[in-house]
Simulated assay, not measured.
Amino acid sequence: MLTFTPAQPPAERTKYTVEATGAKDGAGNVMTAHTWSFTTLELPPPPYSPKSPASTSGPPTPAAPPPPSPRSPGRRSPTPAVGR
């Protein structure tokens, strides 16, 4: 097993190539050189940052109060006369 711990975090959106050479097994046999590469991704922006899709929604906004009633307070609608 080979473990690599970088001194600095890898840069975003960067291609890295790794080459392992000279490694030996328990019996002292040298392994064949092996090369591979990988590319790092861009880290997601923090929540509510300008680049974040979540920032368009932001914290929840309270609902707007209902519109005022067309009737004035204290005024009643006329009651139809029954049986007249």
Results as ranks from 00 to 15, higher is better:
29 N>F: 11
52 S>C: 05
44 P>Q: 05
36 W>P: 03
59 P>F: 14
37 S>R: 00
34 H>L: 14
62 P>C: 04
55 S>Q: 05
44 P>Y: 02
60 P>Q: 06
55 S>C: 05
29 N>T: 11
60 P>R: 07
32 T>D: 15
28 G>N: 03
45 P>M: 05
50 P>S: 12
30 V>S: 12
42 E>Q: 13
40 T>E: 02
39 T>Q: 10
30 V>L: 12
64 A>M: 11
32 T>E: 14
40 T>P: 00
59 P>V: 13
61 T>I: 10
58 G>N: 02
65 P>M: 04
37 S>W: 03
48 Y>S: 07
48 Y>V: 08
56 T>Y: 14
32 T>A: 15
59 P>Y: 14
31 M>L: 15
35 T>I: 05
53 P>T: 02
47 P>C: 10
49 S>P: 06
40 T>W: 04
59 P>M: 09
43 L>M: 14
44 P>R: 02
55 S>T: 00
59 P>E: 12
29 N>Q: 14
58 G>P: 01
45 P>C: 06
49 S>I: 06
32 T>Y: 07
55 S>D: 06
46 P>T: 11
29 N>C: 07
33 A>C: 05
48 Y>T: 09
60 P>M: 05
58 G>M: 03
64 A>W: 11
62 P>A: 09
50 P>G: 11
47 P>A: 12
42 E>H: 08
65 P>R: 06
49 S>V: 07
56 T>K: 15
55 S>R: 06
37 S>K: 01
33 A>H: 07
32 T>S: 13
33 A>M: 12
49 S>M: 08
54 A>I: 09
29 N>W: 07
32 T>F: 08
59 P>D: 14
32 T>V: 13
61 T>E: 12
55 S>V: 01
45 P>K: 06
35 T>N: 03
52 S>K: 01
34 H>W: 13
37 S>E: 08
34 H>D: 13
39 T>N: 03
43 L>G: 13
58 G>S: 01
40 T>L: 03
37 S>C: 03
35 T>L: 04
53 P>F: 03
57 S>D: 15
47 P>N: 08
41 L>V: 11
42 E>R: 10
34 H>N: 15
44 P>F: 03
58 G>V: 01
52 S>L: 00
47 P>W: 10
47 P>E: 11
43 L>Q: 14
35 T>D: 02
60 P>T: 05
55 S>I: 00
54 A>P: 03
31 M>V: 12
65 P>S: 08
33 A>G: 12
44 P>I: 00
40 T>Q: 01
61 T>Q: 12
33 A>T: 15
42 E>W: 07
55 S>M: 03
28 G>M: 03
51 K>E: 15
48 Y>F: 13
48 Y>K: 10
28 G>C: 04
32 T>K: 14
48 Y>E: 09
37 S>T: 05
29 N>R: 13
43 L>E: 14
29 N>H: 11
59 P>S: 11
40 T>A: 03
42 E>G: 09
44 P>V: 01
65 P>I: 06
30 V>F: 07
38 F>I: 00
35 T>R: 10
50 P>V: 08
45 P>S: 10
58 G>I: 00
49 S>A: 14
56 T>L: 15
57 S>I: 10
